[in-house]
Simulated scan of single mutants.
Amino acid sequence: MKFDSDLIQNSVARLSASVRIAVKAVMHAGEVAQKADRGAKTKDGEGHRSVVTQGDQRAEAVLVEEILQHFPKSARILSEEDADNQNMLKKDCPDGLMEATYAYIIDPVDGTAPYGSYLGNWCVSAGVMQHGEIVGGAVYAPDLNGGMLLVSDRERCVRVIDPSTSDDPLNLFGDFAEPVLPKNATVFFGVDSMLYPSLTKLMPEIAANVRVTGIANSGILALAQVACGRITAVIQTPQKAWDWAGAYRAVLETGRIFSFFRLVPDSENPGTDKLVEVGENTYDFDAFKYEKRNRLGYVAGEPAMVRRLMRLLPRKGYARTNPETVSGNWK
Rank of each mutant, 00 (worst) to 15 (best):
H131M: 01
P314I: 06
L149R: 00
L7Y: 09
A227D: 03
M27Y: 08
V158I: 10
L15N: 14
R311T: 15
N145V: 02
L195T: 05
G111Q: 03
C93S: 12
S16L: 08
V62K: 04
S193P: 05
I220M: 11
G317Y: 03
A61M: 06
M148S: 10
E60T: 08
D162L: 01
L15C: 13
A61W: 00
Y248F: 12
N217T: 12
D82G: 14
G301K: 06
L202Y: 04
R76H: 09
L199S: 06
P238F: 00
S74T: 15
R156T: 10
P238I: 04
N217W: 05
V151L: 04
L170I: 08
A29I: 04
A247R: 03
T232E: 07
V234C: 11
A319P: 10
R154P: 07
F71C: 12
R293C: 12
L97A: 04
L7V: 13
P204Y: 04
A113P: 12
A319C: 15
V234Q: 11
L63N: 04
R311M: 14
I21F: 10
V62R: 10
S11Q: 04
G127P: 07
A250N: 05
Q69W: 13
L97I: 03
C93P: 09
V234Y: 11
R308W: 15
K35G: 07
Y283F: 11
R154E: 14
L7H: 10
G190A: 09
A208Q: 12
I106L: 09
T101Y: 14
E178K: 15
M88G: 01
A241V: 01
S218M: 05
M148Q: 13
S164W: 00
L119A: 11
A36S: 15
S164Y: 02
M129S: 13
I206R: 08
S18D: 14
P323M: 02
V51Y: 02
E268Y: 02
I67G: 08
A36Y: 05
E268Q: 01
V128C: 06
E60V: 13
R308P: 05
K331C: 15
P142T: 03
P270I: 02
G279P: 03
T325Q: 12
P270E: 02
N329P: 05
F258K: 02
K2V: 12
L275C: 05
P197V: 02
